[in-house]
Design a protein around this nucleic acid. Structure first.
Lengths: 336, 336
DNA sequence: ATGATATTTGACACCGGTGTCATAATGTCA
DNA sequence: TGACATTATGACACCGGTGTCAAATATCAT
């Protein structure tokens, strides 16, 4: 199986390699006859351009990098799947790069990544999309990036997020409408902007319905199941015990449900539990968790698609979008 | 910020670019003095070689592709994390490529991947690692690959798997030792070799302990939560109901647990439930699932590490390894 | 000191494409 | 038909490295 290069195509078609290159890239100024001829040779020889050579000549890699540091595996795979969809649409590929937000090595680590792989762009997922330090660095490096679920205000870069605040607001209103007044809240990781957004959605709903905010009902989690278990203990030990718990994600909510069940509490009869994210676990456990569904794939897909647009044409207008979150009610919440 | 290329380094150091290249690649036949000098210039100019240019010259991309089609997000992320560890150790990167096993487009799809990204090698995870068709194709394409958790006998390619049969055997013995005799079994997806392995571990354990195999106790799942829910219904509807259920993975086990709980059955008092894989959900639900832990990251890490070895030196001996699986007992199983 | 051998070094082509620019072919209009 | 604008094409350098091979230099035995 001999290698088919642009040279062999050119020779076979009886044109210069530059003309072949023109046809390859759909450039203008090629006569229809020539174009036809070259295209036919493409087919005949089954020619596939070498992306590495193209990359060298154009200083492009056709690879997008995806940064993440997230304990939720379902979130990660959803992000990946949205990103991949957009990449494949434009013949890009996706390189994944989990790393840690904390620690001085972050910038160094990302710098290393950029020099060793010549990415064409980066998708930042939480908590990286909220790291001002990283964003400042990327600006100096002159590499395009898109932010997913970021709360940072930056009109100069692509951003797609969902409305965490509205989601949390709706969920809280749902609990209130079921008659709950003592609603405990488990916060997420302080590095994630979603944490504050969800919290304020919760507070706003309380306030709208004239329920006093009580800081004793708030526990500090970090989105991990483990932290949810700790918070669950705090909350279920309260006297009087709240009648509902709203955890900032489903893993923590699952931890609350587990502890409640261990303690022979009936859910939702004795206590209502709600989460956020609509992770698979929300429907894999019994009772299923009432939660907020975010369009994670869609956010990432749009972000990456726009990123690629911007890479191919830097004058593209910067895209910024907020998608809606949706309340999903399951069995874990009921009127009291 | 001016670009630092091999040419600028060569000029600055007063040597030819070929000599710089030799230093870069730790080639012999460079005098210690020259090497020192060049290394100093590397530091001074903060030189980073361009991987794309290297790739073109050596016809390498320094990228490994990872193929998967697996409903378990935790399995996927574990695979990725093991693969990444090996990749980063050798300055490779990882490109992920989920696709579907079924359908005639598989070969075409993979062929497309190979031509558009010039991967240096492929890691096949289940069910691809068991696809003889794919493996035959890869052989014709002359691209190195490594199989993870594959049951196919192929001495010519790297393979790292864990002992599914032994794991299932141990788990079944555990149930038997708790006094169970009617142990239902939910099979996995027929395309995965693990499905048969786990099944035969189950049968062997029964037979060793003189328990007759009863085909009515076997349900056909496919590793998805959904299929587990269907199988759960079949099994819990049996009369008499078995005293234990062994599902081929944790998602299906979770589905059994959910249905059992919905039906007011006490687990493990009324029925014991066990899974396989030690997925996060196994410890996120109550009661926690007794299961078998497989070293997924370690398998993939070893597979990719060996793959990279083989890429850099094709004469490397083909590595084949079987790792042990480990029984994890939690609250979902008890003596009857 | 001399020739023989081993080590170090660099010139140059090459990997497979793309960008620039000059030139050839074609079209348009008076 | 000639003068000029427009479109099509190719020669050649270049992207930033690596491979080949010959030349230059160092090492060694005699």
């Amino acid at each position: 199986m001999k290698k088919v290069t642009i040279n062999s195509v050119a020779e076979y078609a009886g044109v210069s390699k530059k003309t072949v290159s023109r046809v390859l890239n759909n450039e203008p100024n090629v006569s229809p006859a020539t174009r036809e001829k070259v295209l036919k040779v493409f087919k005949e020889l089954d020619y596939k351009p070498n992306p590495i050579a193209r990359g060298l000549a154009r200083n492009k890699s056709f690879i997008i990098g995806c940064l993440y540091d997230n304990p939720s595996k379902s979130y990660i795979t959803r992000v990946q799947s949205g990103a991949l969809e957009a990449c494949h649409k434009f013949n890009y590929n996706l390189l994944i790069h989990p790393c840690e937000l904390r620690g001085t090595e972050l910038i160094e680590n990302v710098g290393q990544l950029l020099t060793t792989s010549r990415l064409d762009g980066l998708v930042l997922t939480p908590p990286f999309s909220d790291s001002q330090e990283l964003i400042d660095y990327l600006k100096t490096q002159d590499i395009p990036y898109a932010r997913v679920a970021s709360a940072i205000q930056d009109d100069s870069s692509i951003s797609v997020r969902s409305n965490d605040e509205q989601g949390a607001f709706e969920l809280t209103e749902h609990l209130i409408s079921l008659g709950h007044k003592e609603i405990a809240f488990i916060k997420g990781h302080p590095d994630h902007s979603a944490t504050e957004k969800r919290f304020s959605g919760y507070r706003n709903a309380l306030s709208k319905h004239g329920i006093d905010f009580n800081s004793h009902l708030v526990a500090e989690g970090n989105f991990s199941y483990h932290s949810g278990a700790d918070s669950a203990k705090e909350i279920l030990d309260l006297d009087p015990m709240p009648t509902a718990v709203f955890a900032s994600n489903d893993y923590m909510a699952a931890a609350v449900l587990k502890l409640a069940t261990q303690r022979q509490l009936k859910v939702p009869e004795d206590i209502s539990i709600a989460g956020f994210d609509n992770a698979p676990i929300a429907r894999h456990i019994w009772p299923g968790l009432t939660t907020i569904a975010q369009p994670v794939e869609e956010m990432t897909r749009q972000a990456v698609e726009q990123l690629i647009m911007q890479i191919s044409d830097p004058s593209t207008e910067v895209y910024q979008k907020v998608l809606e979150a949706k309340l999903i009610t399951r069995e874990s919440t009921a009127s009291r």
